[in-house]
Simulated scan of single mutants.
Amino acid sequence: MDSAAVLDIAMASLIIAAKLAAPLLITALVVGFTISLFQSITQIQEVTLSFVPKAIAVCAALFISGQWMISELISFTEQLFATIPMLIGNA
């Protein structure tokens, strides 16, 4: 296995990690920004006001996009297993 193959696998792993984390992180970002804006307008400084809606929204996003995330992860894993013979053949 040469360094180019290792770099390709590492790059693909980082891309799949970013794709899988994006729906949850974007949801948390949007809900957090909305709650912060609401708190700054009303000057309510309650910690649970920002945490509870964000946790509920992230759980909903996970429920909605969970099937897609699992299928992406399975296809990536199958692709990695399919490249094993090629990687061993280059050694």
Rank of each mutant, 00 (worst) to 15 (best):
M1Q: 08
D2V: 01
S3P: 13
S3F: 11
A5F: 11
V6R: 10
L7F: 08
L7D: 10
L7S: 09
D8L: 13
I9S: 13
A10D: 05
M11C: 15
M11R: 15
M11I: 15
A12I: 05
A12R: 10
L14Y: 11
L14K: 06
L14P: 08
L14I: 13
I15W: 14
I16A: 08
I16K: 08
I16S: 09
A17F: 14
A17Y: 14
A17L: 10
K19D: 15
A21D: 04
A21H: 04
A22R: 03
A22C: 05
P23V: 00
L24S: 04
L24F: 06
L24N: 02
L24M: 09
L25V: 04
I26Q: 00
T27D: 01
T27G: 02
A28C: 01
A28Q: 00
A28P: 00
V30W: 05
V30E: 03
V31C: 03
V31N: 02
F33L: 15
T34D: 01
I35K: 02
L37I: 15
L37Q: 04
Q39F: 03
Q39A: 00
Q39V: 02
I41G: 02
I41Y: 09
I41D: 04
T42G: 03
Q43I: 00
I44R: 04
I44C: 03
I44T: 04
I44Y: 06
I44V: 07
Q45F: 05
Q45W: 05
Q45I: 01
Q45R: 09
E46Q: 06
E46H: 04
V47A: 13
T48G: 14
S50A: 11
S50Y: 05
F51G: 10
V52A: 06
P53K: 01
P53E: 07
K54H: 03
A55Y: 03
I56A: 11
A60L: 12
A60I: 06
A61F: 00
A61G: 02
F63L: 12
F63A: 12
I64C: 03
I64P: 00
I64F: 14
S65C: 15
Q67N: 15
Q67I: 14
W68L: 12
W68K: 11
M69F: 08
I70L: 12
I70Q: 07
I70A: 09
S71A: 14
S71N: 12
E72W: 11
E72N: 12
L73A: 11
S75M: 10
F76V: 07
F76T: 04
F76G: 00
T77M: 10
E78S: 13
E78I: 12
E78A: 11
Q79C: 09
Q79Y: 12
L80Q: 10
L80E: 04
L80W: 07
A82K: 14
A82Y: 09
I84R: 05
I84P: 01
P85F: 01
L87C: 03
L87I: 09
I88H: 08
A91P: 04
A91N: 11
A91Y: 13
